[in-house]
Structures are given as structure tokens and as C-alpha cells.
């Protein structure tokens, strides 16, 4: 059972590598942020899978924290950065 968990975690990591391309290239700041948010969610899923594959229950707490703090990052972006005239190339 834990083999499937590990394989799926690896598959999600490949997804992350593809999304990294969007973070590096994304035309507008919002695209970069959305890719970073996807990183957060997929990171939560990978942590959960690893927690059940390795039997480390404490990793679920780390996933919980990650899900919580993605909100703070996104809110800081929407309320602090993007209200200014910032074209993404400055």
C-alpha cells in the first residue's frame, strides 16, 4: 500500500516541476502567485501521502500548517502588492 503512496507522491512532484516553469516564466504577477498557491496545495497532498507511507503522523500537522499559511501569503499579495501599479517588469 505504501508503495502506491510513494509513487503518487513522485507523480505529484513531477507536477510541481511543471508548475515551477509557470512561476519562473509567468507573464503577470498573478500567474506566479497562482502557481505558488498550486505549489502549496500539492505540497499538502505530498506531505499527507508521505505521512501515511512512512507512518509519521507528525507530518499531518505540517500539512495542516501549510494549508493555513497559504492563505496568509495570498492575502498579503492581494492586499499589499497588487493594488499598486506594478506591471511585473520593474
Amino acid at each position: 500500500m505504501s508503495e502506491l503512496n510513494l509513487i503518487l507522491a513522485g507523480f505529484l512532484l513531477v507536477n510541481l516541476l511543471a508548475a515551477l516553469w509557470r512561476v519562473a516564466r509567468g507573464p503577470t504577477p498573478a500567474d506566479r502567485l497562482l502557481a505558488a498557491l498550486l505549489f502549496g496545495t500539492v505540497g499538502v497532498a505530498i506531505l499527507l501521502l508521505l505521512a501515511f507511507a512512512g507512518g509519521e503522523a507528525a507530518l499531518v500537522d505540517a500539512a495542516l500548517l501549510l494549508a493555513l499559511l497559504a492563505l496568509i501569503t495570498g492575502a498579503a499579495f492581494a492586499r499589499r502588492i497588487w493594488r499598486e501599479e506594478h506591471d511585473g517588469h520593474s
Binding site: 512532484l13 502549496g40 505540497g43 505530498i46 506531505l47 508521505l50 505521512a51 512512512g54 509519521e56 507528525a58 507530518l59 500537522d61 505540517a62 500548517l65 501549510l66 493555513l68 499559511l69 497559504a70 496568509i72 501569503t73 492575502a75 498579503a76
Partner: peptide, 26 residues
């Protein structure tokens, strides 16, 4: 944080997820 989780250090993964990815980024 994922790397720490992979290295069997869940407490450091917790700290890295909170400080490195969350608070410092904001």
C-alpha cells in the same frame, strides 16, 4: 519542507513550512 519530511525530520519540516514558506514569504 518536503525535503525535511523526506529526511524523517517532521519537526523541522513543520518549522520550515511555518517560517520559511509561510511567514517569511508574507
Amino acid at each position: 519542507a518536503l525535503a525535511w519530511a523526506r529526511l524523517n525530520a517532521p519537526d523541522i519540516a513543520l518549522a520550515e513550512a511555518a517560517i520559511g514558506a509561510g511567514l517569511t514569504g508574507a
